[in-house]
Design a binder for these strands. Structure first.
Lengths: 247, 247
DNA sequence: TGCTGACTGTTCAATATTGCACAAGGGCGA
DNA sequence: TCGCCCTTGTGCAATATTGAACAGTCAGCA
């Protein structure tokens, strides 16, 4: 497909960083994501990069839908608001991910708000061009597989919200985040991005005070740790074992 | 694409029934689903139909994954089990729907169990053949759109589980079910399929006793009704207005 | 036709969760 | 550097949810 040399070196750096940081994932999906990254980089290499400052929004719920975004560097969170104003954090995306792909659904407007958790560099791509590019590069089937994995993951999240208690859900959420965002650490997996208890609460579906108590408990049980740099260390095997034991 | 006369009359009847029963839906998605139905019927017209008796399983969690199923008639529910044995009902599928499509994800085994809520007739299609057929009929992009809608819907379910209380969730679930399964009724929308409170509880994420109380409340407020044939009548506008009022 | 098992409506005590409150602590910008 | 604001840890009373019980209904089946 595309030789490595074709891509701007800055991009390759971030992708290398991304690959190194992947702890555990469906290898087939990872392969597709890499192909997709290459394909999109080809498509957007002449496009202007978009710089988003920490805390700024990329789009908000209700806005008209037109584009898919590709993250060159930074972290983006997707948040949905209930009519009463309560927040639900759906996902955190990092360098090499795409988001906003639900514009492909043909639905009228964005349902969620995307905002930057740190300074972020994006490329934007109208969704028709996105699809054309995938089609040209023979990636439609790979993209279908990618979406199917997304649906399976969401199904699991739904089942967890319905069937298990909040301590268990917090544990599983931490494991997910570790696998998605974490880097290898001598102590297990390290998450450098700071995620507040409030944000965790809005992913797990409970209150901040409750998250605070559980995190404290996990820390006492030595399932997680806060490094001096304030990075969150998740001890994957221990935490997994603990969750199984209280199930 | 395919002229109407090509398809076996029995299938056309069920599809007509299906179309008549669609109360509200994304028209584009419906168009794609119809194209997909035609395409799959062509692919499976020589395949043996599979008869499933009420309450029997089509597949169970953990089984190896190979096929997509297409429903010719009947109703199928997808249920996920927690490690503690608690159930979560993910979806109910009816004539003209496909399910089991997560085998496209390439993941190892089924995550959920599919079982028949009434006697059901299915066609089975290995997932590679399914994809080949979609590709041949130029439906890959349509299928991507279909999956994107699914993801958007699941996102909404997740956000509801996280941000709103169980009465509200029950109301929204009833509306969803009505739109998916309901038929027009002078009183609004009629659901003929009997869904137990236990099943509703496992969709909404609460207990049976609670569902019972809320259903009673909805009935007293005249937002729903049970016909003499024991069909559930959902008064869409009234229920929607009520949910907005307690939000 | 009558039995039987599954479903519904309802109650209630035990338990879990929420939504405050307040006191530190730490990071970031002026 | 200082101060402010966001974040965290913790406690607690008010509230919501669970889970089990039990009686009454209903549908399907022998």
């Amino acid at each position: 497909m595309w030789a490595r040399g074709y891509l701007p070196i800055t991009i390759w750096e971030s992708l290398e960083g991304k690959r190194e940081s992947m702890i555990q994932c469906n290898p087939e999906t990872e392969r597709f994501k890499e192909q997709m990254r290459n394909s999109l980089q080809r498509e957007t290499q002449n496009a202007r990069a978009i710089n988003i400052a920490k805390h700024d929004n990329i789009y908000t719920a209700g806005q008209a839908v037109e584009s898919v975004y590709f993250i060159e560097s930074g972290k983006i969170k997707l948040v949905m608001l209930s009519s009463a104003g309560k927040e639900c954090m759906l996902a955190i995306h990092a360098a090499g991910d795409i988001f906003g792909e639900l514009c492909l659904s043909g639905l009228a407007g964005r349902r969620e708000t995307a905002s930057a958790m740190e300074d972020t560099v994006l490329k934007r791509l109208p969704c028709t061009r996105f699809l054309e590019r995938l089609a040209r590069d023979q990636l439609l089937e790979g993209f279908i597989k990618y979406l199917a994995v997304r649906i399976a993951d969401q199904q699991e999240v739904i089942a967890n919200l319905v069937t298990v208690d909040s301590e268990q859900r917090l544990g599983k959420t931490l494991l997910q985040l570790a696998r998605k965002l974490g880097k290898k650490d001598p102590r297990s997996i390290r998450i450098e991005l700071r995620i507040s208890h409030e944000e965790l609460a809005s992913m797990v579906g409970t209150t901040r005070s409750r998250i605070s108590v559980f995190m404290q408990r996990f820390r006492n049980l030595n399932l997680i740790e806060i490094s001096e740099e304030h990075h969150l260390i998740i001890k994957e095997t221990k935490l997994t074992a603990y969750l199984a034991s209280i199930a």
